[in-house]
């Protein structure tokens, strides 16, 4: 074996990658691995960081808290499996809160992918509190066309849903005999990953004066602050953090609270990457400016030489 076969680390033929270039061009797979590690580790080894509750989450909690046993509440599963991670904890916590207070729940969904989620969550939470379908709660299933559904429910829930999800005629469901329109329902809670919270406000709130609270994905939450400020929305939860705040308020630990450490670490990592990218950007810009200055200087010198000649 000859020494020439293995180039040394100080091989002059291989130029060293400048720091600014390295900082500004980290391989995407490195970022992916870092995100995966930062998210997974706190789930395996929890840090138990404390969380504070926001004003919006407290307002959401208070709206359910002020209801009396036997009051009716409409609960809408306005999402599909893509957003389960963010919204399931809110749905579970809301239903736990409602069933704990013996509130009667009329559940439905505006999404065709919603019934599977609703059946699973309603089944689990109802079993936890010994609630029965038909008297303590009903699941009306999916209804097409969200806006027409929202408006029609203001006139008659039974006409909007002639049967429940399990084909029982609505006229045979005891719960719907007590509450057949918004005027007979104390509160409407929607857990949604789209603009549907806004549409519930516009159609159910605006046209029928229904009190509304909303659980939202983080992306959607930022858009509904104006409705909360005007009081059109009585309270809301924003993203997994909102779910964690609400879990803390009702005193049960769910996926929201369990996920908060991972959320913190992932955010910290992304902020670090943003800072890293910007340091690389600034250094690269300085380097390019220096290069341009040097080239300009060289060109001027050449021009000067030409004139002399």
């Amino acid at each position: 074996m000859t020494t020439e076969a293995r180039p040394s680390k100080t091989d002059a033929a291989r130029p060293r990658r400048p720091l600014h270039d390295w900082l500004a061009n980290v391989d995407r797979r490195v970022i992916f691995i870092a995100v995966a590690v930062a998210t997974a580790l706190p789930l395996i080894f929890p840090l138990n960081l404390p969380i504070k509750t926001s004003r919006e989450a407290r307002a959401y909690y208070d709206e359910i808290e002020r209801l009396q046993p036997g009051d009716e509440m409409i609960f809408v599963f306005d999402y599909e499996p893509d957003l389960m991670a963010e919204l399931d904890p809110m749905s579970i916590a809301t239903l736990r809160h409602a069933f704990r207070k013996d509130i009667q729940v009329i559940a439905l969904t505006d999404y065709p992918g919603g019934p599977g989620i609703a059946e699973r969550i309603l089944g689990e939470v109802a079993a936890e509190y010994g609630k029965t379908h038909g008297t303590d709660y009903v699941f009306l299933g999916y209804n097409p066309d969200y806006s027409a559904t929202m408006l029609r429910m203001g006139e008659s829930i039974q006409a909007t849903f002639p049967t429940d999800h399990y084909h029982t005629p609505s006229s045979e469901l005891p719960l719907l005999q007590e509450a057949d329109r918004y005027a007979e329902v104390e509160l409407l809670a929607t857990v949604t990953g789209s603009a549907l919270a806004e549409y519930w406000v516009i159609f159910a709130g605006g046209s029928y004066g229904q009190r509304i609270i909303a659980g939202n994905t983080a992306i959607q939450a930022v858009l509904i602050y104006p409705y909360f400020q005007t009081g059109q929305l009585s309270g809301f939860l924003g993203g997994l953090k909102g779910a964690a705040e609400y879990e803390k308020l009702i005193g049960t630990e769910g996926a929201g609270l369990r996920g908060m450490d991972a959320q913190s670490m992932a955010h910290l990592l992304i902020v670090c990457f943003i800072i890293l990218g910007n340091i690389g950007f600034v250094l690269q810009r300085r380097y390019q400016r220096r290069l341009e200055r040097e080239q300009d200087g060289g060109a001027k010198r050449e021009q000067g030489d030409g004139v002399k000649r």
């Binding site: 995407r28 970022i31 992304i270």
Partner: peptide
């Protein structure tokens, strides 16, 4: 449900990469 959820979870990686 798991596939649809994972499809959207992929976006966490891409949003981190795009932020950087």
């Amino acid at each position: 449900a798991p596939m649809q959820a994972t499809m959207f979870a992929l976006l966490a990686f891409y949003v981190a990469s795009a932020s950087y």
